[in-house]
Computed example of a mutant assay.
Amino acid sequence: MPTPKIAIAFRDAGLAGIGAVFLGESLGPAAWGGMGFVVAGVAAMTIPARRAGAIAGKT
């Protein structure tokens, strides 16, 4: 289950996407790029971290 911080971070990108799709608003290249960074940041926060032993090949 996502934490409230992740939901808040993703809210703005989701609202911009909804506005572009359903309301016909246009977003510039910088806005689309920013939205991509937000989505990538949310994905990075939700992917579980690997253990140091797993990375080094240790169990």
Rank of each mutant, 00 (worst) to 15 (best):
I6Y: 01
R51E: 02
F10P: 05
I18H: 08
I55V: 15
A40C: 13
G24L: 06
V42D: 00
T59F: 15
K5S: 09
A7P: 13
F37S: 03
G14D: 01
K5E: 14
T59I: 14
K5M: 13
G17T: 07
M45H: 11
K5W: 02
P2V: 08
V42F: 03
P29S: 02
A43E: 04
A20Q: 14
P4F: 03
P29N: 05
R11D: 04
G14N: 06
A13D: 05
A16I: 04
P4H: 06
F10A: 12
G53Q: 08
G53D: 09
G53E: 11
S26N: 07
A56Q: 08
I55H: 01
R50A: 15
P48G: 14
A9T: 04
G28R: 05
T46Q: 13
A16E: 15
I55T: 15
A30L: 12
G57H: 11
E25F: 05
A30D: 14
T46S: 15
T59E: 15
G36P: 02
M45A: 13
V39M: 00
A56Y: 06
A40W: 08
G41F: 09
A54W: 09
I55R: 10
G14S: 01
G33Q: 04
V39N: 00
I55K: 11
I18M: 14
V39D: 00
P48D: 09
G53P: 01
A52T: 10
V42M: 02
V39H: 00
V38C: 03
F10N: 02
R11P: 01
V39E: 00
G17I: 04
P29F: 01
T46R: 12
I47A: 08
F22I: 10
I47Y: 10
L23C: 05
G57Q: 12
I6T: 06
V38G: 00
R51P: 06
A20N: 15
V21H: 13
M1Q: 10
I6F: 00
P29M: 00
A9Q: 08
G14E: 06
I55N: 07
G24Q: 05
V21T: 15
E25V: 14
P2L: 10
A44H: 07
L27F: 00
L23G: 02
F10H: 03
L15Q: 02
D12G: 04
T46Y: 10
P4G: 03
A43V: 09
A43H: 03
M35W: 08
A30S: 05
P48S: 12
G24Y: 04
L23Q: 09
E25W: 07
M1P: 13
V21L: 15
G57Y: 11
K5G: 09
G19W: 07
L27I: 02
D12N: 12
G28F: 02
G36R: 01
F37W: 05
G17P: 03
A54C: 06
A49R: 15
I8V: 12
I55P: 08
S26W: 02
F22C: 11
G14P: 00
A13G: 07
I18D: 11
E25Q: 15
G17C: 03
I47R: 08
I55C: 13
A40Y: 07
A56C: 10
M45L: 13
G19T: 13
S26C: 02
K58D: 13
A30Y: 06
R50D: 11
M1Y: 07
T46K: 04
G24V: 06
L15V: 09
W32T: 00
T3D: 08
